[in-house]
Amino acid sequence: MTNTTSVNLKPALRPQFWSRFKLSELNHSEWEALCDGCGCCCLIKYMDDDDSEVEDVEYTDVACKLMDCATGYCQHYDVRQHYVPDCIQLTPDKLPSMMWLPAHCAYKRLYKGQSLPSWHLLLTEDAVLTQQQMRAANIGVAGRCISETGITDEEMETRVVNWVTP
């Protein structure tokens, strides 16, 4: 007789975890579920961090070499630091210094005491609907970024975009 019982190694998402627990109290699966997959954090940015409280940031449409610009997803997310050692690992303790994240970012919004965007997958529970609503809201890099591979610094300076709002 074959045992067909599968073992779920991922911790379950607790109901409404984003509104019931502090970011530091989330398990790994919950933390990852907050990401809407927009890919904006993977875009190359120009930042002015001259000790002022408000950090100036300009996003380009140039993405990390691991970004699949057609889908907007990292090609090696789970092992990205192996390919890009300086890839930022977002953690609750780093959030205060990462206010350059886009205004729609669930991590930033929850850190600031705001709610999730209405189109977030955790609210809609429908991936297709979420993607449609994100596109309608002009959110995400899929189909509108290029890889950093082969881009010169001079060309990079001409690729600043205004469709990402910090």
Rank of each mutant, 00 (worst) to 15 (best):
E25N: 10
I139N: 04
D86V: 06
K22S: 15
W31D: 03
T5N: 15
E32Q: 08
V128M: 12
L66I: 08
Y73S: 12
T152F: 09
R109C: 05
E155A: 14
S115H: 08
T71H: 09
L34E: 00
A127F: 06
R135V: 12
C35H: 01
S6M: 13
S19R: 13
R14V: 06
I146E: 12
T124I: 03
V164D: 01
Y59D: 03
V141H: 00
L9Q: 14
V141I: 13
D93H: 13
T60Y: 02
Q131V: 07
A136K: 12
T2M: 11
Y107P: 00
Q131L: 14
W31Q: 01
A63S: 10
T5D: 13
L13H: 01
I146D: 05
L123F: 04
C38E: 06
R144E: 08
E32G: 02
I44N: 05
I146Y: 01
I139P: 04
R14N: 06
W100M: 07
D51M: 11
D93Y: 09
T158L: 10
E155W: 06
M67E: 04
A63C: 05
C38I: 10
G140K: 01
N3M: 07
T91Q: 12
D50L: 14
V164L: 06
Y59C: 03
A106D: 05
L9P: 07
A137D: 10
N27T: 05
G72W: 01
G37S: 12
E53M: 13
M67P: 00
P92T: 08
Y107L: 06
H76D: 15
S29Y: 03
P15G: 02
T71L: 09
K22N: 15
M98E: 02
D68Q: 07
L116N: 07
H76L: 11
Q81I: 03
W31Y: 08
L101R: 02
C105Y: 02
E25A: 14
F17P: 00
V160D: 00
T152P: 04
I151C: 08
A137K: 09
G113P: 10
T5S: 14
D36G: 08
